[in-house]
Design a protein around this nucleic acid. Sequence first.
DNA 1: TGTACATCAGTGAACGCGCGTTCACTGATGTAC
DNA 2: TGTACATCAGTGAACGCGCGTTCACTGATGTAC
Lengths: 196, 196
Amino acid sequence: VARYGKEQKAATRQRIVATAGEKLKRDGIDGSGVAGLMAGAGLTNGAFYAHFDSKDDLVATVVADQLEAQRRALQHDADDSGALERFVRAYLSTDHRDDPASGCPSAALLEEIGRGSAAVRRAYTDGTLALVEDLAARLAPQDPPAGRARALQCMATLVGTLQLARALDEPAMSDAVLEHGVQTVLAQMGSALTAR
Amino acid sequence: VARYGKEQKAATRQRIVATAGEKLKRDGIDGSGVAGLMAGAGLTNGAFYAHFDSKDDLVATVVADQLEAQRRALQHDADDSGALERFVRAYLSTDHRDDPASGCPSAALLEEIGRGSAAVRRAYTDGTLALVEDLAARLAPQDPPAGRARALQCMATLVGTLQLARALDEPAMSDAVLEHGVQTVLAQMGSALTAR
DNA sequence: TGTACATCAGTGAACGCGCGTTCACTGATGTAC
DNA sequence: TGTACATCAGTGAACGCGCGTTCACTGATGTAC
């Protein structure tokens, strides 16, 4: 509404990125319009281009931001030995399945990212590499390449399982997919958990 | 262009469903318009509503058709003992990764189906149940519930792995995800393969 | 300290465009005579 | 067998609408004097 110091604009931009993240995860990239994304931050469509070059620029920024947030969340309790198992159980919970807006960006957007622009795929790749690096250090501290491979595989299984649970219209079947998925991913993480 | 026997109309409808399947898998549901889908079948937009009630009706029909096609492909070589392993290797191949249009509908559309209408999710659930039933009989013939659980889990892992490989912008990383995925899924299928 | 001004984040209307859907019309066909 | 007609799959223009993007304008601010 008015002219503030430069950190005010940065704060507004961050607010757009955060609320856009929720909306994009809820309604998809193609399913979200610029006007709606701005309304989510309490602004009108015109102000959008004072913050971003294009919708694609915002999407790439959101993807990077979401992955970074996920990385920070995982890092936060890195010293807790039961943290990974709790993370898997929370990831494959009915709460997460039923609330994509505040959930994992990969589960909500991976398919659209795969069809996305080079900038979006680049942002996704970089964010995922950082996430995988962190996870690898915990899954196989003494063997980074093996840890990275295992981390990527766990991510793929988590994402596929949650997406399948979201798509199935049969509640019992969906719940069963989640429960079975927990066992599978914990087994995939393997000795890294039991060895501690 | 003209009036034909009733089987002519059914053939045209099937042609629309088949070509729309390819386009939907390539560009996504929200990314495909009715006019473009009809053009893919060599028709104009106006004829669409002589065949379907709405775009959503077509999407649900396509989802059912695609899953049925996949089921038939899997059933075709059911008596071949190496078929499952070959299927997994083909699924997680660079060819499949690089050609979504002629590939698995789950990998290409699962996320959008999860956000889709009740009709689309219903069609997906029914088609997947049929597919899972067939697969379960081959993974654990003597224990149907365990077979179904394992079949669903394998599907989830396959889909997640292929989607991740498609989203990653780093070719070496993407290839590695596919290779590691093959080993993981074969292990998940487990004793069903080695026991034969 | 008080006033005039330049700044610029944000507004809201407008742009051309493609969306899903509707509809008056066309014209090749199978059928009735 | 030949002709008149009813059928209806397909055409293409049009509908209102929301899309991504542009732009003239507003008005509260920090700054200069």
